[in-house]
Design a binder for these strands. Structure first.
Lengths: 208, 208
DNA sequence: CCTACCGATCGGTAGG
DNA sequence: CCTACCGATCGGTAGG
């Protein structure tokens, strides 16, 4: 929350970036593999070759780790999608681009994404509220995109916008459960494949 | 695991069904709300108006609660989908029916479904393996359905079966995050809405 | 960053 | 189903 960005590295804030970031990285991995409550601070310290108590020279609390991980994931989604908002693209192309970016954020942050989807209920009320608000924002983004597409004539006029947004969000979010960065599919492959199916449908074209 | 099914209710297995089932029900609720590791046996006992230690007159361990909840969820999916396998329906209708049943299982068991998707990583290796195998089975079910539909001519011949199955599974599984049984949408509404969009596509029909 | 420690809480058991 | 308890482990701190 209180990011020490303004002050550069001086003797005053010695504990240093690098170690702090290592801690957050390893915490993200352990939280995603074992869950927040099943990860002890001693587990975390052990992975970094230090004693449990030593962590507190770099961080303030266990919950702060969770808040930071979840928040930074949310921020990445935000950045990816909201630079898209006012782009002058037809709605179907914009949808393709949005899905691609959305999946890419997940693919590039599989651990944080898993923590985000599984552990956000353990946040303090304040952080919890922020995440809930953020979810609504993403939802609204996709609904607006669909509404725009209907107005344009790109999407069917009888589309149920709420349900279509749900379907799209299901597709992109669920990727955190199965996507493997080491596999052969790029986020672009997945997004294009999904978008093709969503836009044209699974049914065989009429052969008149 | 060792289900006492063969022996009916006798004086020998006194502790009784009802109380046992209450425990499993409340455990399902608490595990879904707070997560497995954040729920203590004393929390659970408190909700049932008893002391922590008293639970062990009815159950054997905390992990057994988790195993049972996850397993019974898996079993419900199995029953819902596998009675569908050999039904002589065109693939698109079978897909509609499968999605409807899949979503209904989630809708009727929101708590178990949440535990299933979030807490299965905390299972012992044996139970973990069973759940993984089960996931593959469900995946195969949808892929076979799609393959059948292509062979029939119902689905496009150029369909990527693996990706299409992923898309369908994303849609139905993600329902556990947003569906509200008290809301106005029935599982049938959701499944039909999704199937309509998936089969025909979002794009506006050509107006020749 | 370590040693040594704090009070609290954990899952589970004994004995009734 | 309760009381009383077990050893283990938790997040976090003091003092260096």
């Amino acid at each position: 929350m209180t990011d020490p960005a303004p002050t550069p590295d001086t003797a005053a804030d010695l504990p240093a970036r690098s170690r702090r970031e290592q801690i957050y990285d390893v915490a993200g991995r352990l939280f995603s593999e074992r869950g927040y409550h099943a990860t002890s601070m001693r587990d975390l310290a052990g992975e970094l070759g230090m004693q449990g108590g030593s962590l507190y020279a770099h961080i303030s609390s266990k919950e702060d780790l969770l808040v930071e991980i979840v928040q930074s994931a949310a921020q990445q989604f935000d950045e990816a999608l909201f630079t898209l908002r006012e782009l002058p693209l037809p709605a179907d192309q914009k949808l393709r681009e949005a899905m691609q970016r959305h999946i890419r954020v997940i693919a590039d942050n599989m651990e944080s994404a898993t923590v985000f989807f599984h552990e956000w209920k353990h946040l303090s009320p304040a952080a919890y509220g922020r995440v809930t608000a953020w979810r609504d924002t993403i939802d609204t983004f996709y609904r607006d995109l669909l509404t725009q597409g209907i107005a344009e004539g790109t999407f069917r006029p009888d589309l149920d916008v709420k349900m279509a947004a749900n379907l799209i969000l299901s597709a992109v979010n669920w990727a955190y459960t199965w996507y493997r960065p080491a596999g052969s599919l790029t986020p672009r492959d997945v997004a294009e494949g999904y978008a093709d199916m969503l836009l044209a449908g699974l049914r065989s074209p009429e052969v008149p």
